[in-house]
Design a protein around this nucleic acid. Structure first.
Lengths: 208, 208, 208, 208
DNA sequence: GATGAATGAGATTTCATTCAT
DNA sequence: AATGAATGAAATCTCATTCAT
C-alpha cells in the first residue's frame, strides 16, 4: 500500500518517465523551432502523447518551460563545475564559451532563462564567483571585475544567440573574445560601478 | 473608395494623423508595460480610439509593431548621424551609449527590433561604418574590428536591457565600457573571424 | 469623441442589446432544459451568436448565471411590491404563490438563486418584512413568526420545484397551503427559535 | 452493510469489501465538502486507492453517487422502521426530524437523492404510509393529508438543508414545526388536491 | 472616417474512463 | 486484484480581425 511518505517523491514508473522525457524533448524542439508561443497541443502531438499525459507531468505550460529552463541551468552548472578543473585561471573563459554554445542548442527557452528558478541560479553564481576569483589570481581578469559583471555578460549573450541561431558560424565566439579582452587587466579603470548583487536578486525575484 | 495608390500619396488628414500618432504612442506604452502579447483591444482603449480606427492605420498587429520598430530604428539612425559630429573618434562610443539608452525607453518592441525592416537597418549600417572608421583612425578601436562586430554588439545589448529594465541603475553602461575596452587596440589579436556582412543580411532577411 | 464618463454606463447599441437579450433568453432555456452544467457553447449556439459575443456581454459563465439570478430576484421583488396592494393582509400569501410559480418557469438558475447577489436579496427582505407585518396585523399569521421564517420557506420551495418541474400540476401549491396553515395563529407555540437575521446573512455571504 | 454485493452472487473478498467501503466513505466526505462536481481522482486519492480499484467497484461516477444515495435511502428506511415504534402516533414527526438531520450529515448526494433508485423509495413509501395512518388515528394529523404530501415535504427539506449546511443551528427544525402545525387537524380544509401517487412515480422514473 | 460589437478559430486546462504494468 | 499513467474529448475563455451602424 502507498504510505503518504512515498507520495512525496516517488520515482516515476518506467513508461511514465519515458513519456516525461519525450514531452520535454518535444517541447525543446518545438519551442526551438517556433518559439514559446507554440501551442501545447503541438508539443503533445510531437511527443506522441495525449494532452492529458502532458498535463499530468507538467500541470501548466509555464511548468513545462520551467522544466526546460531548469535543465539548461543544471547543464550550465555542470559546465561551471567542470570549468573549475581548467588550469591557469582559464576556467571562466571556458565556461562562458561552453554555456553560450549550450544555449544555442536550447534556444527555445532562452526568453525565460534569466527570469525564473532562483535556486539554481544562485547555485550557478557560487561557481561563477570561484571561476572569477581564479581568473583574477591568474591575472587573466582585472581585479575590479565583479561576479555581477559576469551575470550581465550572460544576459547579453541571449540577444546574440536569438538573433543568430540560423547561422552555421556562431557569432558569439568572436563577441566573447572582445568581451574577454575587455576584462583583461588594464590601466584604464571602468567608470561605471558594477551592479550590486542585491540588484541582480531583485531582478530575478520579479520574474515576468 | 480609397484606392491603395491614394494612400501612398495623399497626406493624412490632420485628425487622422493625430489618431495614428495616438495609437502608436499607446502601443509603445502598452507593449512596454505588458509585452508584445498585450491585446490590440487594450492598445485601442489606451489610445482612446476604436478598433476600426486602429486597423485603418495598421492593418495588422504585426504592422503596428513594425511601425514601432521603424520609429526606434529611425531614432537610432538620427543618433548615429549626430554621433558623427563628436570629435576625436568618440562618435561610436557615444552612439552605442545613446542607442542603448534609447532602447531601454522603448523596450516593448525590442524582441522584433533586429528581425525586420531591412531597409532602415541597412541605412543605419552606413553610419555605423563611418563611425567605426573614425574610431579606428583615432586609435580608439583596433583595426581588425568590423562593422559586423558592432552589429553583434547591438544585438547583445537587447538581452541586458530586457533583463534589467526594472532597475533604476542601468546595467548596460558598465557592460558597454567593458566591451569598449575590448575593442581598444591591443597586441592580442582576436582568434575568431568576424561575421561577414552577407551573414548578417541573411539573418535579417529570415525574420521571425 | 468618447469621454471617460460615458464609459461608465453607456447604453448598449441597439443590436448589442438585442444580442444580450438573446443570450440571456437562450441561457434560461438551455439551463432549464439541461441544468447548469450545460455548456456555454450550446448557449451561444442556441442564441445564434458566436462565443465571443456571449463573452463580451458576460465575461464568465458565472456572470451569465448571475444575470439570470438577478432577473429572477428582480421579478420576485416586483411581485412582493405588487403583493403589498392586496387587501386584508393576504399579500404574503399571494407573494409566496406568485414567487413559487415564477421559479418553476425559471428553474435553470435555482441552484444559485439563494447563494449570490446579496444586494437584491436584502431589498426583497424589506418587502417581505412589510408583508409579514400586515399579515400579522390582519390575524392571518401568528405573532411569533419572523421574516427569517419566510426566508426559510422560500429556500424550501426550491426542492419541490426542482423535483416536480416535469409535472403539469404544480405540487408546491398544496404544500404552500399546508405551510400557511402552519403559520396561522394557534395556541400551540413553536418550540425551536427562528434563525436570527445575522445567521441568514452569514449564509448568503459565504456563497458557493 | 453490503446487500448490493450479493447481486453478483459471489461475496467480495474481505479486502475488496474494505476497499469498497473506503471509496464510499471517501466519496461521501469529498462530495460533502466540494459538491458533486468533485473529481473522481480526488475521491480515489482520499480513499487511498487507485483509480482502477475505484472503477472496479463502481463502473461509473454515477454509480458511485447512486451507491451513496442508496445508503441514505436505506438509512431513511431504517429510521422509518424505528419511528413506527414511537407511541401515540408521533412516529411520523420523529421520522421527519430524524431523516432531515441525517440528510444534513450526508448532503453531498442530496441533489440526486430524489431522482433515482425507485425501488428503495417505493419501500420507504410503505413505511411512511403506515406512519401517516398512525398519526391520523392519534389525531395528530388531519385526515385529508396523503402520503404524497409527506413525499413533497421531504423534497422541500432538501432546499433548506443545502442552503443552511454551514450553520451550527439547524434551520429545518423550526420549519418542520411550522409544517407539522399545518398538518394538524383544522377546520380550514386544503384547497388544492394532493399529488396522485402516479404523478410521483412519473417524476421518479424520469430521473435526471 | 470612426466606432466598437461580432466573429470563431484556437489556446490552455480538466476529468471520466481505460488499460498497461 | 490493484495501481495510477494515459487518453482525448470537451469546457471555458481569449483575441486578431471584420463589418454593421
Amino acid at each position: 500500500m502507498t504510505t503518504h511518505a512515498d507520495l512525496e517523491r516517488r520515482p516515476l514508473r518506467r513508461d511514465a518517465a519515458r513519456n516525461r522525457d519525450r514531452v520535454l524533448a518535444a517541447a525543446g524542439q518545438v519551442f526551438d523551432a517556433r518559439g514559446l508561443d507554440a501551442s501545447v497541443a503541438d508539443i503533445a502531438a510531437a511527443a506522441g502523447v495525449g494532452m492529458g499525459t502532458l498535463y499530468r507531468h507538467f500541470p501548466t505550460k509555464e511548468a513545462l518551460v520551467d522544466a526546460l529552463v531548469r535543465d539548461v541551468l543544471e547543464a550550465i552548472i555542470k559546465m561551471a563545475e567542470q570549468a573549475l578543473e581548467q588550469p591557469g585561471g582559464t576556467g571562466l573563459e571556458h565556461f562562458l564559451h561552453a554555456s553560450a554554445a549550450y544555449q544555442t542548442e536550447h534556444r527555445g527557452c532562452l526568453p525565460r532563462l534569466w527570469s525564473s528558478d532562483h535556486e539554481l541560479i544562485r547555485s550557478a553564481r557560487r561557481y561563477i564567483a570561484r571561476l572569477l576569483t581564479e581568473a583574477k589570481q591568474s591575472g587573466r581578469v582585472r581585479e575590479e571585475v565583479t561576479s555581477t559583471d559576469i551575470t550581465v555578460i550572460m544576459w547579453s549573450i541571449r540577444g546574440i544567440v536569438e538573433a543568430t541561431h540560423e547561422l552555421a558560424t556562431p557569432a558569439w565566439q568572436r563577441h566573447l573574445e572582445i568581451l574577454l579582452a575587455g576584462l583583461r587587466p588594464s590601466a584604464a579603470r571602468l567608470g561605471y560601478p558594477a551592479l550590486r548583487q542585491r540588484q541582480v536578486d531583485e531582478i530575478l525575484s520579479v520574474s515576468t
